[in-house]
C-alpha cells in the first residue's frame, strides 16, 4: 500500500530520462492490465504505447499530469474498453470481459503482481517453461505433456512443481513488499 500512496509522481514537464524511467517500469504492468480487457498481446502493447504517446505529447505541450501512474491506468482502461467495443462481430460484443469491480489501487497492485509473474515465467529454464506453458496456457494434462515431450509423467510433475514454486516465491515476495 505504501508504495501506491507515496508514489504520486508529479509530472511537471518531466525530462526524457524521467519519462523513459516511467515507461520502462510501468510498461509491463500496464500491458497486463490491458490484457484483462482484451485478448491479444499485440493489441495490449499497442494500447499501452498509445497511452504513453498521449502522455508524451501532453508533457511536451507543458501540461502537468498530477498522478502519472493513476492517469496511465485510467487511460489504458479507457482505450482497452473502447477497443473491445469496436464491434468486429456480434460474438465479440457478447463476450465482454467479466471485469471485477475492484478499486483502482487493487487494479494497479494486481497488474504489478501479474508483471512479476510474467517475468518469473521469462526466467524459467527453457524445458521447465515449455512444460509449464503446455499445462497452464494450453491446458494439457500431465500425461499429455509427457507424451508430447517424450518424458515420464514423474518428470513433468517434478518440473511443474519447481515452476510453480518459483512463481509462488515471486508472488510471496510481492505480497511481503506490499503488506510486510
Amino acid at each position: 500500500m505504501r508504495r501506491i500512496v507515496t508514489d504520486n509522481e508529479r509530472m511537471a514537464a518531466i525530462t526524457t530520462q524521467e519519462f523513459e524511467h516511467h515507461f520502462k517500469s510501468l510498461y509491463k504492468p500496464l500491458c497486463l492490465f490491458a490484457l484483462r480487457y482484451i485478448d491479444q498481446v499485440e493489441d495490449a502493447e499497442d494500447i499501452v504505447q498509445q497511452a504513453f504517446a498521449d502522455v508524451w505529447d501532453k508533457n511536451r505541450a507543458g501540461n502537468t499530469i498530477g498522478n502519472l501512474k493513476a492517469y496511465l491506468y485510467q487511460a489504458v482502461r479507457n482505450r482497452s474498453l473502447s477497443f473491445t467495443l469496436q464491434p468486429v462481430n456480434a460474438e465479440a460484443t457478447e463476450q465482454l470481459p467479466d471485469v471485477e469491480d475492484t478499486s483502482e489501487e487493487e487494479d494497479i497492485r494486481r497488474s504489478e503482481r501479474d508483471a512479476r509473474l510474467w517475468e518469473a515465467i521469462d526466467h524459467l529454464p527453457p524445458e521447465r517453461k515449455k512444460i509449464f506453458l503446455l499445462s497452464k496456457r494450453d491446458g494439457l494434462k500431465y500425461q499429455e505433456i509427457a507424451e508430447e515431450l517424450n518424458l515420464s509423467v514423474k518428470t513433468v510433475e517434478n518440473q511443474m512443481s519447481k515452476a510453480l514454486k518459483a512463481l509462488r516465491e515471486t508472488a510471496i515476495r510481492i505480497y511481503m513488499f506490499f503488506f510486510g
Binding site: I121, K136, L167
Partner: peptide, 27 residues
C-alpha cells in the same frame, strides 16, 4: 494466486512485453 498464474500463463508469449524493446520502438 492460482488464478493470476493461469491468467498470466494464458497470455504469455515468449519475448513479448519487453519494456526495453517497447521503449526503443517508442523512442
Amino acid at each position: 494466486l492460482e488464478q493470476r498464474i493461469r491468467f498470466v500463463a494464458r497470455h504469455y508469449r515468449e519475448g513479448s512485453l519487453d519494456a526495453d524493446k517497447a521503449w526503443r520502438k517508442f523512442a
